[in-house]
Amino acid sequence: MTTTLTAPAVPTRRRVLPRGFAHGGLLLVLVAIIVFASLRTDAFLSTNNLLNVLRQVSVVAVIAAGLTLLMTAGGMDFSMGGNVAVTTAVAAQLFAHGQSIWLTVVVSIALATVIGLVNGAVVTFTGVAPFVATLATATLLDGVALLVINGLSVSIDDQLSALGIGKTFGLPNLLIVAIAVLAVTAFVMRYTTFGRDAFAIGGNEDVARLSGITVARDKLLLYGLAGALSGLAGIMLLARLGASSPGTGGLQLQLTAVAAVVIGGTSLAGGKGTVFGTVLGVLLLGVVANVLNLLQINSYYQQISVGAVLLIAAVANLLQRRRH
């Protein structure tokens, strides 16, 4: 990888293997489930079903991308799901009041960004633990969302159907948006100083500050970014569902995103994280949910199975890392 050697290089195993191997345990679990699913039901491997799975995980993927960057910097935002709920509610009401698509989208995402920045300001300037601060805002936002739609389902008809069910070159537009977000996030984390600042802040905030990194500004930006991506995810979710109802978004969505990021190997303590791992985490959760549906398993067991897979993936991930 580098060409500078000051001592005879000892080839290490890690360098020889492809990059994805760092997530070998996770990949193995994913492949095992895919093989199992395709043996049990023909429907799984059909193009339609696969595209459907990808369409469904797109929303989680966008949230998880923002969360990966934020958690790498040692932050946490539990209110992204709540932010999604508020965004969908506000956007649905704007549509219901006859506003144009562009205005609606811009206002919703701007609002979500502001919510993120407020989170960031609280965490950065008061020193309240991010977990606590954003759990509070999460609850608050869930309530606000219900208030905005007055506890009723608000339909948007087919105003966002181009995004929700449209396809480009055979790929769902939702998926394309998600891939773009993931790719940009991966680029930022690997190739920009801002991304590397996130690793530094997550690794040791004091050292980062002393090294001339503008920690407070970076953290605000990261929370703002998490908010903006929640807004985008909210628009995507609204486009897919065609309506904002009580319980859209919220804590369930949030927990799925957190689970995906953590399964993907991003450290809860900060300093470590990859978008590739997060993608695997998102896919794993999406595939498991889909397979359980296809096999028509009782929804109680579905929940139990998802929990079990989470546990297995987390353990596989850790065992994998310990060997290095």
């Binding site: 920009t192 100083t193 590397r196 530094a200 040791n204 090294s211 001339g212 990194i213 300093g271």
Partner: peptide
């Protein structure tokens, strides 16, 4: 920062002082 590589630690302050954007 123990998790970051030798090179990145070496250049941590220098790159920020130079206001480098890409890595």
């Amino acid at each position: 920062i123990p998790e970051l590589t030798v090179d990145e630690n070496l250049m941590l302050a220098r790159d920020r002082l130079d206001r480098r954007r890409l890595h």
